[in-house]
């Protein structure tokens, strides 16, 4: 009896040890970046993963998985169908993802997931070359009103993507009516678009500030307006859109979601852990270094924000004809 008990417990220990060893990757916290390495979503996962470990908010390391496809649609579909109750999984997203959802380009709507929080945001800007005749948003909108196809506008998103839409919102708020006539040239990144701006191939660029700030400091380009509520401290000369009478903001926030069937307990733990992370020195430094403005919205507040943004983006996309 006793021998048998010892034997069983030994076996148990061995198999437990083996299981722990074998199952470690599956049980560890995982952050999916729905893109290739490099870029914003990858940064979100890698930085947040690192800081979660540094602050001991999770056991061990956070495993970062890259799952590119369909601007996040592949990951969205996979989480919805296979891992909707996996409390150890978080996924990076941003305004870009919500724009895709609003335009019906994801396999499911916002209700399929639980939205944890946003931790920072990049600010949209409108820029021209240093020697451009356009001096303000008013100049730009006047030129577009007179002849919408007179200027070539460019940015890093596709037609109907976030860089394009927020420029059109600014134009609409500034009184331009024939929005579809404005020409848009897509480049692979904000800096690509800016080099073409300096090279004189395009006239106006709309994109995030973080990528192109260096060109503003070097004097190659000028900011016509920034799409934030307040001026950006590093570029305090550049007026906001609101100051110029254009009632709009255009942030590109960075945040996280988890599966739709995750329990309330697990969800609340995540939200509070992320809030702790947000308030840490580590995150504040990392975010600023990456060119983000730290902004926190979490839990129910964030859920409501997501739904509102999804609705607003869908309405605008319909208004300007990106979707029917």
């Amino acid at each position: 009896m006793r021998v048998a008990a010892i034997w069983t417990s030994k076996l148990g220990m061995i198999s437990a040890g083996f299981m722990a060893f074998a199952a470690l990757p599956a049980d560890a916290t995982e952050c999916i970046a729905p893109s290739n390495p490099g870029g914003g979503w990858d940064f979100t996962c890698r930085t947040i993963g690192r800081i979660l470990t540094e602050l001991d908010l999770v056991d061990g390391n956070v495993q970062v998985t890259n799952m590119p496809g369909g601007v996040g649609a592949v990951t969205y579909a996979m989480v919805a169908s296979e891992r909707s109750d996996d409390a150890d999984l978080i996924v990076a997203t941003s305004t870009v993802g919500i724009t895709q959802i609003a335009q019906g380009k994801y396999p499911a709507g916002v209700d399929a997931m639980r939205w944890l929080g946003m931790l920072g945001a990049d600010v949209g800007v409108v820029a021209v070359a240093a020697d451009s005749e356009i001096q303000s948003m008013a100049d730009l909108n006047e030129a577009l009103k007179a002849d919408p196809s007179s200027l070539t506008t460019a940015g890093s998103s596709s037609i109907g993507g976030w860089d394009h839409i927020r420029l059109l919102i600014a134009a609409r708020e500034g009184g331009v009516e024939d929005l579809p006539a404005i020409r848009w040239v897509q480049f692979d990144g904000g800096t690509d678009a800016v080099t073409q701006l300096i090279g004189g191939q395009v006239d106006v660029v709309s994109t995030d500030i973080s990528e192109i700030g260096g060109f503003v400091e070097s004097g190659d380009i000028r900011l016509l307006g920034v799409m934030s509520d307040e001026r950006i401290p590093a570029f305090s000369d550049a007026p906001t859109m609101i100051e110029q009478g254009i009632e709009m903001t255009g942030y590109n926030w960075r945040g996280l979601y988890t599966g739709g069937d995750v329990s309330d307990d697990a969800y609340n733990t995540w939200v509070s852990n992320l809030e702790t992370l947000y308030n840490s020195e580590n995150w504040q430094t990392a975010a600023v270094e990456f060119g983000l403005v730290p902004i926190w919205r979490g839990g129910d507040d964030f859920e409501a924000y997501i739904r509102e943004q999804e609705k607003v983006t869908a309405d605008i996309s319909r208004d300007i004809g990106v979707i029917q």
Binding site: I159, G160, H164, P180, A181, I182, R183, W184, G321, V322
Partner: peptide, 12 residues
């Protein structure tokens, strides 16, 4: 198939 793809506006 290729000849059927179209976009509403903006792309010349």
């Amino acid at each position: 198939y290729g000849s059927t793809y179209s976009v509403a506006f903006g792309d010349v």
